[in-house]
């Protein structure tokens, strides 16, 4: 990594966020910048890709390349970019609705390809930008503007979801502990392969200020717990299944071939290089040798 002596604040742009005062996403923004400082990545080598939602505005607040795309599609755009440009640090960011609802179909495929990108979900359990509708992580029974009589859908549990699909890096953190969050991000970016970090980010406007207290009362660090081993999938599942409290840390981490490794192996086998395009190798060129002009070949 090239040292560039940039500080966290240098990665943050002058654009004023649209987020409400007290939004957890401010902390996420600061943590990302801290992670970039820690890793000394040149800003022009970073591309942060998002979909639509409050948290998807984040790329605009960074001094890096950014792409604020359409609802649910951060992952395929990020994957396409990374597959085409392996030299870049590519990070997808967004909310729980963007990632688990409208874009939920892409997550399993990014995981099974193990594309070397990081995916940070700011999970606030609500649709904030559209003003308070239930999201795929809204707790069962909660009243929102679209669940007048209480939410009757069982919420998605992001850690189980990604572990279940075989993600090679799964972590959880919260902006209530920015240092921990930045550390998780550093680990994720350093991880070769698809790295998922679920970030419990409070929405004070639609979940109330008490969401801070709710998180604070329940959060704990799994690396301090007995039996913690990020290489042990069974241990990871034990913490993932804790739905009473909020476990923070790296649940699981596994070395595996990235999508790029797999592509490179194929190319190596083929001897791929930038060759000239020769028709004979690409299409059927009939051999008309021996035929002259006006040869009659079908007898009348």
């Amino acid at each position: 990594m090239i040292m560039n002596n940039l500080k966290a604040k240098d990665y943050i742009s002058s654009l004023k966020p649209i987020w409400c005062p007290g939004c957890g996403d401010y902390g996420v923004l600061n943590a990302i910048a801290m992670a970039f400082e820690e890793l000394s990545i040149p800003p022009e080598k970073i591309a942060v890709i998002s979909g639509i939602g409050c948290s998807s505005r984040l790329p605009g607040y960074l001094n890096t390349y950014g792409f604020n795309s359409i609802h649910g599609r951060a992952l395929p755009i990020a994957c396409g970019l990374k597959i085409a440009r392996d030299d870049l640090t590519v990070i997808a960011v967004g909310g729980d609705g963007d990632g688990f609802s409208i874009g939920g179909g892409h997550l399993s495929h990014a995981i099974r390809r193990n594309v070397d990108i990081s995916y940070f979900i700011m999970d606030n359990q609500i649709y904030g930008l559209t003003k308070g509708q239930a999201s795929p992580t809204t707790p069962f029974g909660d009243v929102t503007s679209t669940t007048s009589y209480g939410n009757i859908d069982t919420p998605i549990w992001p850690i189980s979801f990604t572990l279940g699909y075989g993600a090679t890096f799964v972590a959880q953190s919260t902006p209530l502990d920015i240092k921990h969050l930045a550390t998780m991000m550093v680990e994720a970016i350093k991880h070769p392969g698809f790295a998922f970090v679920n970030i419990i980010s409070p929405c004070v406007t639609y979940r109330g200020k008490e969401m801070y207290q709710y998180i604070r009362d329940r959060m704990y660090y799994i690396d301090k717990e007995e039996g913690y081993d990020p290489k042990d999938l069974q241990a990871a599942w034990r913490f993932a299944n804790d739905r009473e409290r909020i476990p923070l840390g790296v649940f699981y981490k596994k070395e595996a071939d990235t999508y790029r490794d797999r592509i490179d192996r194929v190319k190596e086998k083929l001897g791929s290089k930038k060759m000239d395009i020769e028709m004979e190798k690409l299409a059927f060129v009939p051999d008309t040798g021996g035929l002259g002009e006006k040869d009659v070949f079908i007898p009348g």
Partner: peptide, 25 residues
């Protein structure tokens, strides 16, 4: 063979989005 990549996407939405991502790059 020509230093390129073909990715079989999970659906057409992913296919066009990966295409856009690569071209952005």
């Amino acid at each position: 063979l020509y230093d390129g990549v073909m990715v079989q996407a999970e659906d057409e939405i992913a296919a066009i989005c990966m295409t856009i991502g690569a071209s952005y790059g």
